[in-house]
Computed example of a mutant assay.
Amino acid sequence: MTPISTIDLSLWRAGGESAANVAREVDEGLQRAGFLLVREHGVPRELVADVRAAARKFFALPEEVKAQYSTIVGGRGWIPPGMEADGYAEGTETPPDLKESFTAGPETPVGDPVVDDVWFGPNVWPAEVVELRVLLTAYTEAVRKLSNELLALLSTALGLPGNYFEGCTDRPTWMFKLNHYPPLATVGEPESGQFRIGPHTDFGTVTVLDREPGEGGLQVYTEEGGWEDAPYDPEALTVNIGDLLEYWSGRRWPSGRHRVLPPQAGAPEEDLVSLIFFYELNHDARVTPLAPPIGTVAGLEPVISADFIKSRLDKITM
Rank of each mutant, 00 (worst) to 15 (best):
V297S: 12
P293F: 07
G295L: 02
G242A: 01
D243S: 13
A236G: 11
E270Q: 15
S274F: 04
L261A: 12
L272M: 06
D243I: 00
V297D: 02
L290S: 02
G256H: 12
R259M: 04
W253K: 11
V287D: 09
L261P: 10
T238R: 06
P289C: 08
G299C: 11
L300S: 09
R286N: 03
E280L: 01
R259D: 00
E235R: 15
A291L: 11
V297I: 15
A298C: 09
E269Y: 06
E270M: 06
D284R: 09
S249I: 00
L237V: 04
L275E: 14
R259L: 05
F277L: 01
W253C: 08
T288A: 12
A267K: 12
S274P: 02
E246A: 12
L281F: 14
W248F: 11
A265N: 10
Y279F: 15
N240D: 08
A298R: 15
I276W: 01
E270F: 00
A265H: 12
G256M: 07
L245A: 06
Y232A: 00
T296Q: 15
P262W: 03
W253A: 08
E246V: 00
R259I: 02
V287F: 02
P293L: 09
F277W: 02
I294N: 05
E246G: 02
G242P: 11
H283V: 14
E235W: 05
R286K: 14
S255A: 15
G299S: 10
P292Q: 08
Y279P: 01
L281V: 05
V239Q: 09
R286Y: 02
R252E: 07
P254L: 08
P292K: 15
V287H: 11
P289L: 10
V239N: 10
S274I: 00
T238E: 05
P263G: 09
